[in-house]
């Protein structure tokens, strides 16, 4: 199926990242107070005019809070092709959001997360144009507090495999400051490339941070400023 798609996944103009090939998974690495998670949300919600599916695995944030965060940078967000696996452990509340939400009671239930992800992916794949689905996992660091590295690696590798086989795009967030370097390097093996994110120290208020792409072909080199709004 991945062979059916040839166009890379494109991003909003404010992000200095060239389209990424279908079937790829990237790790977005940045400390907790950097805009790394916002970059993941923006990469997954993509270009708003494109009818692609967006699927989030949200480990700590409820589905409502996640969508609220997405709308901060994209107020006109259309969530009809959005799915969320809410692993926050909080009781589902009646909601007006039109995204499809599936709940998993604890982050340690990787089997439950994986199976609900698979089922939701299938349904988004069926509805999205050309089966194009972007997946955001926010975050690996949060899951690492509940399961050991081997289980987490296997989980991330399985997600990455499904994304590869379906020609999707995977974007996994990690906070490298909370892990041993060996953990980050091991988890990095499931991804095709890495996007490092850091805060911006300059005076230009239009700039939200800086990012650097590594391991992906035909991308800008070095640190590049970006804007999320």
């Amino acid at each position: 199926m991945s062979g059916e798609q040839t166009d890379g996944y494109a991003f909003d103009d404010g992000l200095p990242i060239e389209p990424i090939d279908p079937g790829s998974t990237v790790l977005v690495a940045g400390p907790a107070f950097s805009p790394a998670e916002a970059v993941v949300r923006s990469l997954v919600m993509g270009e708003t005019s494109v009818e692609e599916g967006s699927l989030f695995i949200s480990t700590s944030m409820t589905s409502e809070k996640l969508l609220k965060a997405c709308r901060r940078t994209n107020p006109s967000l259309d969530t009809t092709l959005t799915g969320i696996i809410d692993c926050s452990g909080q009781e589902p509340k009646p909601s007006e959001i039109d995204a499809e939400v599936k709940y998993v009671s604890t982050q340690s239930d990787l089997t439950g997360i994986g199976m609900k992800f698979s089922a939701l992916y299938e349904s988004l794949y069926a509805e999205a144009v050309d089966g194009r689905v972007r997946t955001g996992l926010i975050s690996l660091s949060s899951l690492a507090m509940y399961v050991d590295l081997r289980k987490l690696f296997r989980f991330a590798q399985t997600l990455s495999g499904r994304i590869d086989s379906a020609g999707g795009l995977g974007v996994f967030a990690i906070d490298p400051t909370t892990h041993d370097e060996r953990t980050v390097n091991t988890l990095g093996q499931v991804a095709d490339g890495r996007i490092e994110v850091r805060e911006y120290d300059g005076d230009d208020e239009a700039i939200d941070g800086e990012l650097r792409v590594q391991g992906l072909p035909a991308q800008p080199s070095g640190w590049q400023p970006f804007s999320l709004s």
Partner: peptide
């Protein structure tokens, strides 16, 4: 799925 925590299983309907 709680009994299988950690074991990864793919699902296809």
């Amino acid at each position: 799925t709680t009994e299988l925590r950690g074991a990864i299983t793919e699902y296809v309907g």
